[in-house]
Design a binder for these strands. Sequence first.
DNA 1: CGAGCACGATTTGTATACAATAATCACGCT
DNA 2: AGCGTGATTATTGTATACAAATCGTGCTCG
Lengths: 221, 221
Amino acid sequence: MSRASERAYAAIRAHVLSGSVAVGEQLTEDQLAQITGVSRTPVREAVRRLEDELLLVRSDTKRLFVADWSRDDIEEMFVLRQMLECHAAERAAKRLTREQIAALEALNRELTAAVEQSPPDVARFLEANRAFHEAIIDAAHSPRLGQLLARLVEAPVVLRTARTYSQDDLRQSARDHDELVAAFAARDGDWARAVMGSHLRRAFHTFARAVGPANDRDTTA
Amino acid sequence: MSRASERAYAAIRAHVLSGSVAVGEQLTEDQLAQITGVSRTPVREAVRRLEDELLLVRSDTKRLFVADWSRDDIEEMFVLRQMLECHAAERAAKRLTREQIAALEALNRELTAAVEQSPPDVARFLEANRAFHEAIIDAAHSPRLGQLLARLVEAPVVLRTARTYSQDDLRQSARDHDELVAAFAARDGDWARAVMGSHLRRAFHTFARAVGPANDRDTTA
DNA sequence: CGAGCACGATTTGTATACAATAATCACGCT
DNA sequence: AGCGTGATTATTGTATACAAATCGTGCTCG
């Protein structure tokens, strides 16, 4: 993606995630062009991408709105992410080099440091966490898998704010990561898959706590 | 997607799949604009979508080429598709209405008819097959799942030609579909998942036979 | 004779003007 | 007063012109 559309993408994304625009509120391409300082052409490209990531949606008549993620939407997303990322972990267990495993350990030291300072540095945590998961996905050597996950991972994780994580939540994440590294070191794909599964499922519940209770019907498999 | 970009999308797709352009050959947006009869603006939108579907790829320097799918690429795609579509089948088993199951039966009668005429009508088969799988995905009630699968399903299935299917292959597909319907009627998600798994894995092998032998290294999990 | 560089041609990226479509509002009719 | 209905405005879609980047080629200089 080239300079102007990249800028537009980042600016629009930041604008939406900052919360300065309510969910369900309409956006126009002109507005966004003004905000981002580029013309509508690259804005349209950026918007397309954000639609793909489901941060923005279009009405039946092509009008643009910021997406409203229900709890069920979030759960659906986590279920899919879990399915794909467990697969990635299993593959990664067979493919990670010693150097890559060492790099994961380093990332998790960074993450742990972010957790243990007081107060915990959530932004620093999130960045280390993102890098950790990304490294695993890369090591799975499955470009399409990476592409699919890219759509899923970023979108709502920040949307409903990350500020609801308790220090205990963060510590548990760090422990999960430690165990993942152990599974990788042992080259045990089943183990890695299992750890990743519980890791993400717990993340969902942590996340869901903040957004509200489940509906009583049709909440996934 | 609106009229011009839709036309461009369909035209470019058809042009690439017709085989009248070699894999690895460069395409320019101007060419495509001429072929499709619209301006570059909607062409660029269509191209973006086709890139997403991995029918087209861009070089590091943004030049546009028709993608070259290796056998490993195809296997990777089938592995992901199997993972997601098994999940869809399992969910669908719990959600399909009697009417929807009846509709699946009807689709499979159509598919069987296409297979049993002589010679088998492959195009008719493919259309019924597509509709059958789509109905299952819809019934899973997981819009993001549908979106992810949309990226995977269409791209290469036709690319390397469908003409390699033998009548036996087609008949086996029809039997798989019958069994899927039976699993749905029994509301047995495990059964549905298992049938879908073998159905798609066999499809991969049928497909792979045509494109060549596996590499001896790193051919997926 | 070959390597590197400069320049013209090609191709992609962006801005802008215009066209088509959808929403809003005012008005008149029943 | 309610409800179509048409004019007006707002918004998205498309075409085109221009800017930036990239490629190919031939020329110079070592």
